[in-house]
Design a protein around this nucleic acid. Sequence first.
RNA 1: GGACGGUUAGCUCAGUUGGUUAGAGCGUCUGCUUUACACGCAGAAGGUCGUAGGUUCGAGACCUACACCGUCCACCA
Length: 809
Amino acid sequence: MLSNEQIFAAQYNAKEVEDEIYKKWEAGGYFSPESNAQEGARAFTIIMPPPNANGSLHIGHAVFVTLEDIMVRFHRMRGERTLWLPGADHAGFETQVVYDKKLEKEGRNRFKIPREELWQEIWDFTQANKKIMENQLRKLGASCDWSREIFTLDERIIKIVYQTFKKLYDDGLIYRGTRSVNWCVKHQTTLSDLEIKHKEQPDPLYYIKYGPVILATVRLETKFGDTAVAVHPNDKRYKHLVGKEIEITTLLGKTKIKVIADMAVDPEFGTGAVKVTPAHDSNDFEIWQRHEKEIPGPKAVIDQYGRMDLIKYWPDNPAAKKYHGLKVAEARKVIEEDMQKEGLMEKIDAAYTHSVATCYKCGTIVEPRILPQWYVAMTKAPRSVTPPTPSYPKRGNVSQVPPPSLRGGLPAQAGEEGLSLRDMAVEAVKAGEVKFVTKKFEKIFMHWMKNLRDWNISRQIVWGIRIPAWYCEKMQNAECRMQNGVVVSIDEAPDRCPHCGSAELTQEPDVFDTWFSSGQWPFATLQATNDFKIFYPTSVMETGWDILPFWVMRMIMLGLYATGKAPFKHVYLHGLVRDKDRQKMSKSKGNVIDPLGVIDMYGADALRMALIIGNTAGNDIIISEEKIRGYRNFANKIWNASRFVILNLNQDFVVAGLQPAYHNERRLKPAATIKLSLADKKTLKELEGLAKKVTRHLDKFEFHHAGETLYHYFWHTFADMIIEEMKPRLLTTPNPSSKRRGSEPFPPLPEGRRGGVGDRRAAQHVLYMILTTCLKLLHPFMPFVTEAVWQRLPKDKASMLIVEQWPSK
RNA sequence: GGACGGUUAGCUCAGUUGGUUAGAGCGUCUGCUUUACACGCAGAAGGUCGUAGGUUCGAGACCUACACCGUCCACCA
């Protein structure tokens, strides 16, 4: 037998015990539901939000790991069939951006690397990151079932994603549409509406002369793409011009342009007249849609790189040549000067500020372009029959206008049935099928749902799941033309067009928006691992509130659509960990705090507690080193209080030759030989109350309350009061660890007071019960130190705290 | 323009269905080798709960208005 000093150092050293303990858990298989519960037990499931496999974990990840691990450990100890399914996200665009930067540093360019080659490079890159991440999750104590770990690009997942795509397509909920989209000039891809950020910025507002009218615009350089002038229908100032063509002088010469009336024009703004540039403004695109018979179609005068693109329309015009190839910002300046010179500028309002759409990743101003993209219809009911797909122009040069009837989605069809994706989700939430922790998120959810627009799921990058579509180049018969040559094939690449038999098929180069696949994550993972039957719907979805619209919303919609059931019963949304300047931490900003560094210094338990306590659901988390240090101290407190109790127990066993058999006593009832005092009974009653209280808090997702309650009880009630009170009652035999050993005899028990061996046993019993109960209750929060102590408890056979029985109902 | 939060001790925040002297951690101050722990122990100071009304026997909690701060959304040319 090891001596007490060998077992217990006077200071808890997290670094020495954590890795070893994690290995024991993992090797013991305790993380899998097969080994942690009875077959018939109730299931508890959390699907881990898969971290992006494009970097290492930051402190934000530590938040979700802690919260989810607390829930998982709690339910596991309750005997539930507990599954925490880990994964990693290929994170399409995000990873592409990270990798682009890496390439840039190496002096390379993604557009010059062959698709397959680039794919393989990024694949290797993510696999390497994935490994690092997994070990970081282990360091944090994540008790997830590694045997089920899955990557978002796993074949099994892709298959399911394709099936959902096909179903949506067949139901008419996915379509290819040509319309004004958000184009990032830097990243050379479109972005969904959620991926653009509006930024306030000052820009001169130009009042330009268009023949008889004066109109205000910021985007001077788009004027060459104007196809009309629009005014409000009730605006008396322009009534006489509506429907007529006016002659205007531009820098490219004289031309004619039509004046139209549209409700979208605000008569209060500027002069009440606006230029209509459908190719480069999404509003104007919509105006054109409403007036397509009256005015010419979009004229794209800016190319995909954000450069003026004029000579295709004005091949011989010297002015066009002058501006051609200039970047938007430069062109604007030059055009401003030239217009001043030509007397085409009425005035310039330099004090004007407005908001511009920018790429959420790089901040580049988004350039609206008209492109064919795949869309998910959010507000339309599914159709039971496959509709003829509207025709659209071929991919590639889209400066030609699509046929009018075919822009913007589906023609109205008979035979619609069921609820739209949006309505499914709204109904499910209203019915309480999905509950948000903190009601306020339900409000936010509803607000989002109200304002949903169709979702562009096409991305012009290589890193992602390629959209399983092909385009027939020939379109040799009516059927094929009816389908616009679109071939959706989810099993294999088609040799021939199923419509017309042509062998000339071109594969869609675009990949899915990563959220399209991760929106299916809960059911896709469980189907892939054959766990769907038992573990779906899952119990809790725990993630950051910032991805409520990106992810949670879409999981609810797609989960309901694909399986008929909402993918989770509760949504717990945590806040963002912010740095000292309250800035969101993100890899791209480079302001991340390394959780591993913190763990190395203070231990994972300390970090976990610091992230939990003092934070409620949905509130941002500001973390400080002092706070972490405080909970490191608490871990040490646990260690030392335990040390005290165990030293006293062990000593008794050694002296009296007793077998340690305490560990089986789960109930708070002592053996018959032990006589508890009234106060002892009261103390144990309070302990039961504590367990109940903590359990209640955990059931209600009040982790901060549970943690704080335990912290306070353990330190200020148990350690400060109960242990102190017990000390005299334990003084029946000399304690070899006493500092007085050898110098003076052990003090005798006070005469005439309760004492003796019986009383000592009672005191030991109480201490033992409190300690073991607290260790269990604390385990979900601080798994390492509690397990480390548990392993040092005197007991007659080995056991692991991770699967001990939870001490309350 | 729309929506959602917040305002409680020096700092970071709790305060659960309205109920005694409003709590915690950190920090500050005073004193302590005590069968574990100085990463400790004992104790102390510190708050007109954003402002003004209202409901109530009773309001930090509920209602109204206002002020300030923050976040998100948005087709302000």
